[in-house]
Amino acid sequence: MKKYYFWFCLLFATLAMAQEENQNLRNFEAKVVNAQTDRPLQNVHIINLTQVIGAITDKKGDFNIPAAVNDTLFFSYLGFKSQKIRVTNDMFKYGDTKIAMTELAYALEEVVVKPYNLTGYLEIDVKNIPINTAYQYQIAGLSKGYEAGSKNPSAVTKVLGAIMNPADLLRNLFGKKPRQMRKLTKVKQDDHIRDLLASKFDRETLEELLQLEKVDIEDILNNCNYSKSFIRTANDLQILDAISKCYEEFKVLNRDK
C-alpha cells in the first residue's frame, strides 16, 4: 500500500509542477531590427531554449512566443550574428521590447574551381569522378542500415560492434546530459525549429538546444557509426534525427540496467 501511495504522490507532484510551469508561461511580444539601420528584420528564427518552442518574425519584425521570466531566447538570422537574451519581468511589464541584431562582416576568400577533366572516354572518366565513401550496410532482421565509413573488412566489424555493444560507447556521452537529450522529442515536434535546422549546417543552434559542444555532437555520431561524409555534409535537422535515433536505441539497450 505504501508503494502505491509513494507513486501516487510522485505523480501528483509532477502534474502540479507541470501545471504551475504552464501557468507561468505568458505571450512574449517583441520586435527584431537591424542594429545598423534600425529596420525590421523579417523571417528571423526565435527559439525559446528553456521551453523548446520556436517562432519567426513577420514583415514588421514582430513576433510572439510563449515564455516565462528567466527563459532564454535564441535569435538566428542568415548574415547576422546569433544572440541570446534572458526574458525579464520588465519586458512583460513595459512591453515595446526591441532586439537589435548585428550584421556579420564576411571576408571573401579566393575560390578555386577544379573541373573533373572529363575526356569523353568512359574508362578514363570513371576514374576521375569523385566517389562517395559513406557506405551503408544492411543486416537481415534490422530495419535500418548502418554507415561504416569505409569499404573494408574492419567496417563490417565496426557495424557489428555498434549493434552488439553500443551502450558502452554511448553511456558516458548520453549519461552526462540526459535532460538535454530528452529535449529531442520536443524539438522534433516544433515546425519552426525544424525549418530552421533544415536550413543550417553550422551546428550552432544544435549546440544551444542540446547544451552540447560541437565536438560532443561529432563524438556521438562517430560512436553511432555515421560516416565522416555524413557528419560533414548533413544539415542540422539530419544531424538531430541521427542523434535522436541513436539516443532511442541507447535507452532501449539500457532499460534494464
Rank of each mutant, 00 (worst) to 15 (best):
A140S: 14
K144Y: 15
N132W: 10
G145W: 00
A134H: 04
K158G: 15
A155D: 02
T157W: 11
G149R: 04
K144N: 13
A162V: 01
S154G: 00
N152K: 10
S143P: 03
T133S: 11
Y137P: 00
D125S: 05
I129Q: 03
T133K: 15
K151H: 06
I124G: 00
D125K: 02
N128I: 03
N132A: 09
I131M: 11
Q138I: 04
K127P: 01
T157Y: 09
K158R: 14
Y135V: 08
Q136G: 05
V159T: 13
I124P: 00
Y146I: 15
K144H: 15
A140T: 14
Y137H: 03
Q136N: 07
T157D: 09
A155Q: 07
T119I: 05
I139L: 13
N152A: 08
N165W: 07
S154Q: 12
N128Y: 11
K144A: 10
D168K: 12
N128S: 13
G161N: 15
P153S: 11
G161P: 02
Y146Q: 04
T157G: 04
I131C: 05
N132E: 07
L118N: 06
A155F: 06
S150I: 09
I139E: 06
L118Q: 07
V126Y: 14
L118D: 08
Q136L: 02
A148P: 02
S154C: 00
K158E: 10
I131Y: 13
V156R: 12
G145P: 00
S150D: 12
A162R: 11
G161L: 08
G145Q: 00
Y137E: 01
S143Q: 15
P130V: 07
P166I: 00
L142T: 07
I129H: 09
G120M: 06
T119E: 07
Q138H: 15
N152C: 04
D125T: 04
D168F: 03
